[in-house]
């Protein structure tokens, strides 16, 4: 199918983009890489009156090292971040997760911030952002605010972004933990995960993150001397799981119980 008609705006600066959002609000959608948005437009799942294309805004094209965090601008593609030389050393969990994000061909265009904005519950980048306690930077004419990932993602495809706000960047705290692992179960490599699990081991505890089971990424810290199987089972029941064309809720809980211990084991053995 083809999208319904819309007005197309391609601002040259963040200021112009924010002004366009202030003028059009809920009638507008921000287009960056379009790897989720364009599919939704083609299927007419969304019918915005205005598209604001931010892909060519120079201010949004940077990967910047700040004190203690890596800031990734809203126009940075997933493949550009994968090719960033500091990735494996500074953000080993993200380096482990990025190869699972879509396909080579969609990562060439899809953006890091776009994944966060789209807020699919099975999506890898929002899961890593939640695991590391990262932040989302939002700008509007009213000013700039920064939200923790846990406050930003509110539910299935739902975030705390106001209609006049532009996500200008996300910030991943630089990781000092080296023992990380990421794994997911999908119908085909690169497809949406049915269940994704991340683990970061740190001293006497391990943090696990789960995507694709609840309506948003879930994280849990588990003491190393606790019974891992029991802890994962409790988490599976707590998150319940949801049913869609790919899997039942029960199957999601079962996959989580099976792969979480493997991912934790992999993290414990890993020196990234």
């Amino acid at each position: 199918m083809k999208p319904r008609p819309f007005d197309y705006l391609r601002p040259d600066t963040v200021e112009e983009a924010v002004a366009a959002l202030a003028a059009h609000g809920e009638a507008a959608r921000v287009l960056a890489g379009g790897q989720s948005l364009m599919a939704m437009l083609n299927l007419r799942l969304i019918e915005p009156a205005v598209l604001i294309d931010i892909a060519r805004v120079p201010e949004l094209a940077d990967i910047r090292e700040m004190s203690g965090a890596i800031e990734i601008g809203a126009a940075v593609t997933q493949n550009r971040l994968m090719a960033w030389p500091g990735l494996a050393e500074k953000l080993p969990l993200l380096a482990a997760a990025l190869p699972f994000v879509g396909h080579f061909q969609t990562r060439n265009k899809g953006t890091v911030c776009g994944s966060v904005a789209h807020a699919d519950p099975s999506s890898e980048i929002p899961l890593v952002l939640a695991m590391l306690g990262g932040e989302v930077v939002l700008r509007s004419r009213r000013g700039t605010r920064t939200l923790l990932a846990s406050a930003f993602q509110r539910g299935m495809l739902s975030t705390a972004r106001e209609p006049d706000e532009l996500i200008t960047a996300v910030r991943f705290p630089v990781q000092r933990q080296r023992r990380v692992a990421f794994r997911e179960v999908a119908r085909r490599h690169g497809d949406f995960a049915i269940v994704a699990v991340a683990a970061v081991a740190d001293g006497g505890r391990v943090r696990i993150g789960v995507g694709g089971v609840a309506d948003r990424p879930a994280t849990r810290d588990i003491a190393m001397d606790a019974d891992l199987g029991d802890a994962v089972n409790a988490l599976a029941w707590e998150l319940e799981g949801y049913e869609d064309i790919h899997a039942t809720a029960r199957m999601r809980r079962d996959i989580l119980r099976r792969i979480a211990p493997q991912v934790v084991d992999e993290a414990l053995r890993c020196v990234a």
């Binding site: 197309y8 379009g34 790897q35 364009m38 083609n42 598209l51 294309d53 061909q105 969609t106 265009k109």
Partner: peptide, 16 residues
Amino acid sequence: LIDGAAVRSCLTLAVQ
């Protein structure tokens, strides 16, 4: 390929 990078042309607007 757009500027050398393989992308889906169905997920790209002509104007982009």
